[in-house]
Simulated assay, not measured.
Amino acid sequence: MHAMILAGGLSHERDVSIRSGRRVMEELRDAGVEVSMHDVDHDLIPALTTGSVDVVWPLLHGASGEDGSLQALLEVLEVPYVGTTSQAARVAWNKSVAKAVLARNGIKTPAAITMPQSLFREVGAEQMLDSIAERLGLPLVVKPVRGGSALGLSIVRTRDDLARAMVHCFAYGDMALIEKFVEGTEVAMSVIGSGAEARALPGVEVCAEQGTYDYDARYNPGRIEYFAPARLTEEQAEVVAETALRVHRTMDLRDLSRVDIILDKEGEAQVLDINITPGMTETSLMPQSIAAAGMPLRELYYAIVASAAARGA
């Protein structure tokens, strides 16, 4: 079996993608798979249409790998691939749309307002920010509607910080999600499999320095304390696991996903984010979850690519 890892791309998360790709490639090689790594460039389609590639594992983070475009290309080329279909990826990638789908299916997420950058210019930023802060209350979380790795994310604790957070957010996209900050225990839940066969792995509790799990904290060791498995009661662990599985199935995700959840003070699980292409770097959460489950990475990664290859295009 020849597996091709797609990593790199032109998003802000290029370096993370390459690190993820290299880690997965090493594990697959150790499992006896013929594996190569390719960037998304002019040589990609010729490389995919030679007939030598049995399965592709897209590990591009950001729009190019998670908004459904790359998946749609692979579907057009009839190349089997790991992960969620293009249609489901488009829905999961847009945080505002995903929140609406989850809410419609009874899955709780923090209250939020979505605003485009253009509207701030047209009606006056300060007045709008006053109204938003009054409606949702402080503290708030501001993040791009489309994006990953917490790029552009800020936690806003005072009204004076809100404008700065919006500017930071709009540097990474033209649409902002302004969300009520929920106090509680943050748990990253990894799910493997599809449909009725999907199963949740042990959660990873994330304790961030100053409460901000931003890009720098995620990918630079030392700023985050992780607990895998999460320090939860059996009942709490069941709540977050069931929530992650409901999200995975409701959003029609496939093969693997990571659902970031906050377990609030009332014991309710609220969904913060959905990741269809979880990071696989040395500090990423999914590999920690796999290790907590006592599963060798190479064996699980082999099973994932073998299943995708057998499924076909």
Rank of each mutant, 00 (worst) to 15 (best):
L300P: 11
I261N: 01
E27P: 10
D216C: 05
R146Y: 08
L28H: 08
R146I: 07
A72R: 10
D174P: 10
V271Y: 11
V259I: 14
Q270T: 05
G279P: 10
Q236H: 07
L297F: 02
L285Q: 03
A98K: 08
G68F: 15
A112F: 15
Y301A: 13
Q87T: 15
L48V: 07
Y302H: 12
N220H: 15
G267C: 12
L74K: 11
K99T: 03
E179T: 05
A176Y: 12
P287K: 01
S190L: 02
A165V: 04
T281A: 02
S149P: 02
R218E: 04
P144I: 13
W57F: 15
V239H: 06
Q270M: 06
G124C: 00
I290T: 02
Q127H: 15
V145W: 03
M115R: 01
V82F: 02
G279Q: 10
V142M: 08
M115K: 00
G147T: 09
S96T: 12
I262S: 03
M280F: 12
A133I: 15
A133W: 09
R90W: 06
K108T: 08
V101L: 07
L232Y: 13
A72T: 03
E75L: 10
G211I: 04
P296C: 04
G294T: 01
L201I: 11
Q288H: 13
V123N: 01
L74F: 12
W57R: 09
V82C: 07
H42C: 07
L59A: 15
A196M: 02
P116V: 02
L6F: 02
P221V: 00
D161K: 09
Y301N: 07
L77H: 12
A308K: 13
A92L: 03
A89D: 13
A303H: 11
V142F: 09
G51M: 05
V182D: 01
I113G: 03
G152T: 00
N105I: 05
G137H: 09
A176K: 11
P80V: 04
R311N: 04
Y219K: 09
W93E: 03
S284C: 06
V91M: 07
Y215H: 00
V247W: 01
A133G: 15
V259D: 10
E179H: 05
Q71A: 14
V53T: 08
M25T: 14
V204H: 06
A89E: 09
